[in-house]
């Protein structure tokens, strides 16, 4: 982040754009595909391109939008929708942690950065450290905009072309899972300590076992956060030193 204090003259606009595009490209691909699936679902349920456009622009959350379609079809009461939306998306409340300073540098677009922050964008932002020639403020913004627009475009393509394309698309949403797996692999390579990953894995399985598939997300993230705070000194030392202390994950839990 030292880049931010440098004067903007040291940056190349063209290379910043190319860098933003390159780091967004797996997301753009997966958003076009999953957005397309959402567009088809809405079209088949009898809703208009305007519904799809507004969802993509203002909800911008794949998991909620796809879960929302059968709930709309079933005419779920609006008050129930408030709770459903909260439960499905509660994980987002963890994403902003550590991003206030970075997003504030966007000035007037600070609120946009807070809004345009779904799982996949969180992935790239958490993984990168920009090269010296890249303007980090512009790169963040362009990445956010490109991803958002590809999500909206995917939905619109789906709702307009859903009729034309007749082959069975089921399973295409695996693209989102694939993206998360790729980011996990990248982080595994880049993180100096793997303690945070072990904590995430163990928390996920414990909460999956206790709370079940539909409700484990919020407890799992909370548990990860608590363990990370409890093991702060230890993890921090490992992250700084870069020497992996291969602690058994079960042991970590016992200590907690």
């Amino acid at each position: 982040m030292e880049n931010s204090v440098k004067s903007s003259s040291g940056y190349s606009l063209a290379r910043t754009f190319l860098y933003a595009f390159a780091q967004s490209s797996p997301i753009i691909f997966s958003y076009l595909v999953v957005g397309f699936a959402f567009g088809i679902m809405m079209q088949e349920a009898g809703y208009t391109p305007l519904h799809v456009l507004l969802s993509g622009l203002f909800i911008y959350s794949g998991s909620l939008q796809i879960a929302m379609v059968p709930l709309i079809v079933a005419h779920t009461p609006l008050i129930v929708m408030v709770f459903a939306a909260f439960i499905i998306n509660s994980r987002y409340m963890f994403y902003g942690i550590g991003y206030t300073e970075r997003f504030k540098r966007q000035g007037i677009l600070y609120p946009y950065m807070i809004f345009a922050f779904p799982d996949e964008v969180y992935c790239v932002f958490s993984a990168n450290s920009y090269p010296h020639y890249v303007d980090p403020v512009k790169c963040d913004l362009w990445t956010a905009i490109m991803c958002h627009m590809s999500w909206v475009s995917g939905g619109l393509l789906g709702v307009f072309l859903g009729d034309v394309i007749s082959f069975d698309m089921s399973g295409i949403d695996f693209a989102a899972t694939g993206l998360f797996v790729c980011i996990c692999v990248n982080q595994w390579r880049e993180f100096k300590s793997h303690i945070p990953m072990y904590i995430g894995l163990v928390s996920a399985f414990i909460c999956l076992f206790i709370f079940g598939a539909d409700n484990f997300m919020l407890p799992a993230l909370s548990l990860s956060l608590v363990i990370l705070v409890v093991l702060k000194e230890r993890t921090k030392r490992a992250m700084d030193r870069g020497t992996e202390t291969d602690k058994n994950p079960e042991e970590v839990i016992l200590h907690e």
Binding site: R91, S126, T177, I199, S203, L208, M217, L225, M239
Partner: peptide
């Protein structure tokens, strides 16, 4: 930013990403 929040900003992504994969496979 309190020190702990700064630290969480660095390590939390590592935990969250694994939880997201499990979420996709739930």
């Amino acid at each position: 930013l309190p020190d702990t929040v700064d630290y969480l900003g660095k390590v939390l992504p590592g935990a969250i990403m694994i939880v997201l994969v499990v979420y996709c496979l739930r």
